[in-house]
């Protein structure tokens, strides 16, 4: 399997806080990679370095390299809008825009210059279908997205990310605010989507990582402790700290 993203010796400081310590990690194409670890371990911070979301954080200093398809995402020539089109993101709390379902999905393509209504109709329909939401909302595309359930809103956010045709989808605890059925729907969706996209997900739910991720990385106090195939991490972890964390011996 090809590496989609290659991170080498990534160090990140928030002011005096050393939040990522020499993290090196390859993210495989068309696979799901999960980042696990206790709160504050750096997993979300690392996820956000992949599409430069940390650029918005004051006093944030990043060293090392992150290559996407062999190109350095921190190169000064990189247009972050284009980068974030390629590397989409879905957050913990579903955050639909206060507008219609249709306009939520069409928002990104419009920003990227698509004005043709027929083209937008096609993108909206395809994105909603890809996010397994179309059948539930096809008769109310022009009603407010805020009227959807939490699970539907999160699938809408995934559809919104898909609408700009990304290569990579980053998800930061996308199901932590959802009920078990909505969670399973999102998990099934991610398993379907990995054939076309590269997916990286931060999760506190260890069963979720073991259910859907092909690869899992365990972070602890800013360090990436262990990375490997998920079945290895959850059956025979190499590092005692990984074993202690996933078996709940950490206290």
């Amino acid at each position: 399997m090809e590496n989609k993203i290659v991170a080498k010796n990534v160090n990140l400081h928030y002011g005096s806080k050393h939040a990522l310590k020499n993290v090196s990690l390859d993210i495989k194409e068309n696979a799901i990679t999960a980042f696990i670890g206790p709160s504050g371990c750096g997993k979300s911070t690392f996820l956000k370095t992949l599409n430069r979301m940390n650029d918005y954080v004051e006093n944030c200093k990043i060293e090392g390299t992150i290559l996407l398809d062999g190109e350095d995402v921190y190169d000064e020539k990189v247009d972050t809008t284009v980068l974030r089109k390629k590397v989409g993101m879905v957050f913990q709390q579903p955050n639909p825009f206060p507008m219609s379902i249709y306009d939520n999905i069409a928002y990104g393509p419009r920003i990227h210059g698509i004005k043709n209504k027929r083209e937008l109709d096609r993108i909206v329909e395809e994105s909603l279908k890809a996010a397994a939401l179309y059948d539930e909302v096809s008769d109310r595309l022009h009603t407010s997205a805020l009227g959807l359930s939490g699970g539907q809103q999160q699938r809408l956010c995934i559809a919104r990310a898909l609408a700009v045709q990304p290569d990579v989808i980053l998800l930061d605890e996308p199901t932590s605010a959802l009920d078990p059925i909505s969670t399973l729907k999102i998990e099934e969706l991610l398993l379907d989507l990995k054939d076309k996209y590269t997916i990286a997900i931060v999760t506190h739910n260890m069963q979720q990582a073991s259910r859907i991720a092909d690869y899992t990385a365990f972070f602890l106090v800013g360090e990436m402790i262990e990375y490997g195939q998920t079945k290895d991490i959850f059956s025979i972890p190499k590092d005692k700290r990984t074993e202690d964390y996933i078996t709940g011996r950490f206290g």
């Binding site: 073991s210 059956s235 972890p237 990984t242 074993e243 996933i246 078996t247």
Partner: peptide
């Protein structure tokens, strides 16, 4: 408990 790793083994 859905044990994992050494606990599962």
């Amino acid at each position: 408990q859905q044990p994992v790793a050494s606990d599962l083994r």
